[in-house]
Write a protein that binds this DNA or RNA. Structure first.
Lengths: 141, 141
DNA sequence: CAGTATCCAGCTAGATACTG
DNA sequence: CAGTATCTAGCTGGATACTG
């Protein structure tokens, strides 16, 4: 029997990894997470019919349409990395032509709130940031 | 007198900007926010003595020591962009040698919780991700 | 439909040297 | 201390063409 609960192990994990340290693997993970396409894909796959946080399976083509401007290369590459990291699942249905569906895992769902907040912040505070930039830029002239 | 409250304007802003659209300025803002150093700097400046969320002024050299591995160029560049966007303030005290202090603005504080959550998620779930990667990689062999 | 493969322009970011 | 300036290797990501 385990002498530590899952919650205890989580707490220990958080204490042991420190993204401020260059050598820490969590630094590299943070770097991967800090990606425009990661944020947008995770946001998209987490906007279920019941609202935010609920997983919503999406096809490759759906994603490619929703994430305007993403290249095939970046979409595929990002989805693969998310699959590798256990954040999304990739399900192939052998229809003709083939159908591929992507869905958030439990791990992916646990991150969804944060990336959604990031996207939401950018949209909500766009005007503030724009105003600050203008002030800064005219002051520098 | 204004016929709309600040809260109403915020809601409208959020509705008007959509980071899923390639042409939307919030897409570019999201891209800037999606940066390893932005996340770490914002985390650092928001870890006040009373805990998370409380602004904590830091000197350039303090930041450079805490964010292990950051180059002078990246630190300065990132701090400048955060200053331009109104997320941090830069205060120069004319001592000899000069002392420069960076501090989160109210806008910066409003983003702190999210970036801290991102950093925390990476540290907490590092083990899960690592486990998934191993499974994925051995399966591909 | 859902990719894979290849090429390459351009930007990024590290290293290095210098300064008020 | 807190930068600025410069150079460049190499990685990123877009464009393009092809496939099961």
């Amino acid at each position: 029997m385990a002498t530590t609960t899952a919650a205890q192990r989580k707490a220990r994990a958080k204490a042991e990894y420190d993204a401020f340290l260059a050598v820490c693997p969590s630094r590299k993970l943070l770097d991967r997470l800090s990606d425009k396409w990661v944020t947008l894909i995770l946001c998209a796959l987490g906007s279920g019919p019941g609202g935010a946080g609920e997983p919503r399976p999406m096809r490759y083509s759906e994603l490619s349409r929703l994430l305007a401007g993403v290249s095939q290369k970046m979409l595929t590459q990002t989805l693969r990395s998310l699959e590798r990291d256990g954040l999304v699942t990739r399900t192939v249905t052998p229809t003709v032509p083939v159908t591929v569906s992507y869905e958030l895992t439990a791990l992916g769902v646990s991150l969804h709130g944060t990336v959604r907040a990031l996207k939401g912040w950018a949209e909500t505070h766009m005007d503030d940031v724009l105003a600050h930039r203008e002030t800064y830029d005219t002051g520098e002239a």
